[in-house]
Structures are given as C-alpha cells and as structure tokens.
Write a protein that binds this DNA or RNA. Structure first.
Lengths: 204, 204
DNA sequence: TCACAATACGGACCGACGGTCCACATCGGC
DNA sequence: GCCGATGTGGACCGTCGGTCCGTATTGTGA
C-alpha cells in the first residue's frame, strides 16, 4: 500500500458517510441530524465518522468542499466570462451570479458552519478566497469604490441575509440577483438607490 | 396576596438570577455559562430558573430587556435630538449613535439570541420596533432612498458584523460610527463612497 | 499463499448539557 | 397559628458530541 493513501474499506466508508450526511442534511436540516443518525444511515459506527473527519464541524466542511472546489475550478480555469480572459464587467457579473447561486444552494451548510465557528464567513481561508476574488473583480470595474462595494456586496451575499430576504420576507431570488447586478453597475449616480427597487417592501 | 403578583421570595430569586446571569454572561461569555452555573451563582436551584423564565432563550431575553426598555423610553419620551421634537437630521444621527452603542454594548447577548433563534435580529418583535423607527427617521431625511438605506444600515448594525469589523478586523468603533453617519448624510453624490474611508483596510 | 503488522471498525461508554418532576418548604390571607 | 396556594432544589432524564479499545479487515513482503 502506498504510504499516506487510504485503505479500500476506509475510502468506501468515507464516501458512504459523505453521501449519507449530504442527504440527511439536505432532507432534515443540518441541526436536526445527529452524528448517530449519519452513522446509522451510512451503515457505519459512530467512531468511524470521528476517525475519518475529526469532528462535526469538519464533516460539514467536508460535505461542502467538493462543491466549492468545482466552482473554484470554473473561476480559475473555466471559459469566459466567468473564467479568465473576458471583459471585466461581464466577469464581475458572472461571478456575482455564481456566488449567489452557490450561497443560496448551500445556505443550510454555510449557516450551520457559521453557527459553529464564529465569523466563519469572513475568517475561513476558503471564504477569504471568494472575498479576495470579489474585491479583485470589483477593482477592475470600480476602482473608486472597491472597498466599499466589496463590503456591501459581501454582506448582502451572507447566507443568513439571503435566507431572511427570500425565505422570511418572501423576496424572489431573481429580485436579489437584479439588485446585486445593479449595485455592481458603474453607476450614473453612484451605488445608491438600486436596492430600493429590490427591497420595495418596507423593512419596517 | 393580590392575584397574579409574585411572592416575595420569588421576586427575590428572580432578581438574584438576573443579576447572576448578567454578571456571568458578561464575565465568561454567554455560551460558556450553563444554567447550572447560573443557579449556583444565584444560590438557587436549577428548577427555580426554569420555573421563573421558561428556558434559556427567555432568560437571555430577560437579561437584555431592561436595557432595551430604558433605551426605548429615551427614544419615545426623552429630550431632543433623540426624543421627539428635534430636527430630523439630528434625530437620525442621535438614533444611529444610540443603536450603535446599544448593539456594541450588548453584542454578546444579541449574538447569543441570534444563535438560538434564527433571524431573531429581523423577526423578533422588539427588534422590529428598532427597525421601524430607523425606517421612520430615514424617511424624514431620505425620502428617495429610505428602503435601501434602511436595509444597508440595519445590516451594518448587526451584532455579528460589528463584532467582526471591530474585534477581528481591528477597526476603531469610532470609524464605524463615522461611516454610519456618512451613509446617512443627504449626500452630494448618493450613499456610495463613504464607507470606503471607514473600510480603508482591504477586505481581501 | 500465507503470516502478520498496520490500519480501520463499531458501539459501549463518558461527561455535560438543557430541561422536567415532585416531595418538601415557605408564604401570606384569614 | 392554620392551611391552601405558591415556590423550591436537586435528583433525574434523554440526547448530544466525542473517546476508547477489543476485534476485524486489509494489503504487503516473503
């Protein structure tokens, strides 16, 4: 056996655990699923999960990781406008679309992570990559307001904020998307106002 | 004994519990303090806490309540500029100061509440009051951008966002205050740009 | 093919938690 | 001082994330 690689049964179990966790998290909500539930569903002892993944937080991260990796490949090496080589404004908008879809699609996992490790959204190394990339693309189109827009857009893209706007306030995801795009338009009158259309229902 | 009022020993214990909880939460961090810790510190059985307050969430709310009530009295009946009767712009800025101080001062409790009940920040009846009042004051000074500004400012005033900016990123609270005030200035060029000064350190 | 060391397994077990229960103590109107 | 209403405290419960270790599986080198 090559040093450092995984035994066949171990690899099989890792896959079974990840699959079971992904399904249960999706079906019942992350907080509702215990480690025992996952072990049972994966046909595995609880100890095996902890041996493979360390702790619950790491398991959640492991479920999220492949989705994030696939996305990152598109950003780093995919075709324009998302990948390198396209026009700056198109690249920015494609990137915003991707982020919105990713966060929305995986809001349950992301919120669970933030719930377990404070400031995960800002502090985690993987999400720092996404923020850095956002800042880079904004710098190309909005050299004046880069920091401000990065801050505003990244806050608007938080999983809990999106979840509130869409799930609780009943806003259409496409309204949110439109709002993000308008914020990122090299505006005639500055970055103000656009969200007023998205957020037409009064906050009060 | 008058129907519905509290027996003397019960009132004494309620006060002892609130005092002990407030001190422990403040000293050790909310998540680190168990109900047993509070019972011991208050010189009371654990059952007494649950009888008086129902559950842990309600206890945290009860610790926060008097601070919120005091503040609300200032807003509803205090002297201008914070209370009614002052000039609209001054009223708005005084209100932003108050909110910032309140959220910052009580960030530990607020974050703990949000941690326990999802969307507490937006959905709880007491915080809806603060959002409504914010929207009202913004409407008086920014009739065009009311909804947008309410959304942006309320997000910037979230306890976790402030905590991140100040505790993790090392930003000075007075920088944050200045940023809020600038966002709320009837701007020459719209609400953009101001935060760039607050957020000078790059986000990436 | 086989022996055996390295690796992995699983579920009993642990300590801590929030919350409940109820035999007993205290209060206060009469 | 009597006595029903109210309050008390801590043993107890179910569940959780996480650990431990005797046993089973794997794959390699001979």
């Amino acid at each position: 056996m090559v040093t450092g690689s995984e035994r066949a049964d171990a690899a099989r179990n890792r896959a079974a655990i990840l699959a079971a966790a992904a399904e249960l998290f999706d079906r019942d909500g992350v907080e509702q699923v215990s480690m025992n539930d996952i072990a049972r569903a994966a046909g595995v002892g609880k100890g095996t999960i902890f041996r493979r993944f360390g702790d619950r937080t790491a398991l959640i991260e492991a479920v999220l990781l492949p989705r994030s990796v696939a996305m990152r490949r598109l950003v780093d090496h995919g075709p324009p406008p998302l990948g390198p080589g396209g026009e700056a404004t198109d690249a920015l908008h494609a990137y915003l679309d991707l982020l919105l879809d990713f966060v929305w699609e995986n809001r349950a996992l992301i919120r669970a992570l933030e719930h377990r490790v404070p400031h995960a959204y800002y502090a985690h190394s993987s999400s720092r990559y996404w923020l850095t990339e956002l800042a880079r693309r904004l710098a190309a189109t909005h050299p004046q307001d880069t920091d401000y827009l990065t801050y505003i857009l990244s806050t608007a893209l938080r999983a809990d904020v999106l979840d509130y706007l869409i799930s609780v306030r009943g806003m259409d995801p496409e309204q949110v998307r439109a709002g993000l795009h308008r914020l990122a338009v090299p505006a005639a009158r500055g970055p103000g106002a656009p969200l007023a259309d998205v957020d037409r229902r009064s906050v009060s």
